[in-house]
């Protein structure tokens, strides 16, 4: 029964997201696209935190690298091909994750958290201090990439509506890919590693290699999100890879409940909504956000995903 209820919920949500751009509200269509992009970002982190057991506090680095790669791969005075910049960003971010992963996966626990943060900060300084990406001012993407394949133009990103649908498709594909990945032999192995790494090694799994692969895949997907973000907003700054961004995405994942893809997506939407509402109230909205975070940790262990179960238990609606 539960399966059917959640499928219906998913179907309704997807339908709502597809229909929404018809409201012709440019602002909210863009906001929706932003939330979905952050949802992709959160999904990629959940693969690490929720399923591989790697708490990365530097995931913004790969998001930012994806965003910068998109801009840097694009020609200055012509629209780039979407089919060049998007894969290019994914590969660049994945490659960065692979290299950084070789270092950070030598550590575990608290060290891992600190070292991922430190490496992300290093990447931040690369873009902040040097001229490659326009320094601290950032850099503009002058034209939206073109989706043309020869004479065929499947869609046009200049159209806000079509752009939003494209992001929707990217989110659904990412979600499908990750769900599929978890059912694969590789996915079973990383979940096993999260559960009991020592035993996995004793069984003959080269666990570090699996973790490195998961780290790389997560980095590549974060790069996809970063690329979409750059395309949506048309400019990138070092703030995209600041540690606040890493903290925010971790917040989305935990808020939604780790180890639940639906939770990550919900967490991203909740984050964007909170940001929107709070910043409407006061310039010092981060104060409210901080308060929500502290309260959530103290009073809502397990995140939003655990909420239905908690409510059910609280109201004794135990009808199986």
């Amino acid at each position: 029964m539960k399966f059917r209820a959640s499928s219906v919920a998913l179907f309704v949500a997807v339908a709502a997201v597809i229909v929404f751009p018809f409201t012709d509200s440019a602002f909210y269509t863009e906001l929706l696209a932003k939330a979905m992009i952050l949802a992709i970002f959160a999904l990629s982190l959940d693969l690490l935190v929720g399923y591989t057991g790697l708490v990365s506090f530097g995931h913004a680095a790969y998001f930012g690298i994806g965003a910068y790669a998109t801009v840097l791969l694009a020609p200055k005075y012509d629209p780039a091909s979407l089919w060049v910049v998007l894969p290019g960003a994914v590969v660049a971010a994945g490659l960065a994750a692979l290299i950084i992963g070789l270092f950070v996966l030598r550590t575990r626990g608290i060290y891992f958290i600190m070292v991922t943060l430190a490496f992300a900060q290093m990447v931040y300084y690369v873009f902040h201090d040097t001229a490659i990406g326009g320094g601290s001012d950032g850099i503009y993407l002058n034209f939206k990439p073109s989706a043309a394949l020869g004479a065929f133009r499947p869609f046009d990103l200049e159209q806000a509506r079509q752009q939003c649908w494209f992001v929707t498709a990217a989110l659904l594909i990412t979600w499908w890919f990750l769900a599929r990945l978890l059912r694969s032999p590789f996915g079973r192995a990383i979940v096993g590693i999260r559960s009991n790494e020592q035993r996995m090694r004793a069984l003959g799994f080269a666990t570090v290699r699996y973790k490195l692969a998961a780290f790389t895949i997560a980095g590549a997907i974060a790069g996809l999100a970063g690329s979409l973000y750059a395309i949506l907003f048309g400019f990138v700054t070092p703030e995209l890879l600041s540690w606040h961004q890493s903290g925010n995405v971790l917040l989305m994942v935990i808020l939604g409940g780790i180890g639940s893809f639906a939770g990550s997506v919900g967490g991203a939407f909740a984050f964007v909504a909170m940001q929107e509402v709070f910043s409407g109230w006061t310039r010092h909205w981060q104060l409210l956000m901080g308060g929500v975070i502290v309260a959530a940790v103290l009073f809502l262990p397990g995140g939003l995903a655990a909420l239905p179960g908690r409510l059910k238990r609280a109201f004794g609606a135990d009808r199986g």
């Binding site: 890919f177 599929r180 990945l181 059912r183 694969s184 032999p185 590789f186 996915g187 079973r188 192995a189 096993g192 559960s195 009991n196 035993r199 996995m200 069984l203 003959g204 799994f205 692969a213 895949i217």
Partner: peptide, 29 residues
């Protein structure tokens, strides 16, 4: 053991360690 897995999945995963195709990411385990 892997406490959250079924008994069967514990053993299937153990057997998987010997499978050269253990790295496939899109097929069903």
């Amino acid at each position: 053991i892997f406490a959250k897995f079924t008994a069967f999945e514990n053993c299937r995963l153990a057997a998987q360690s010997r499978d050269p195709r253990a790295w496939r990411i899109l097929s069903d385990a």
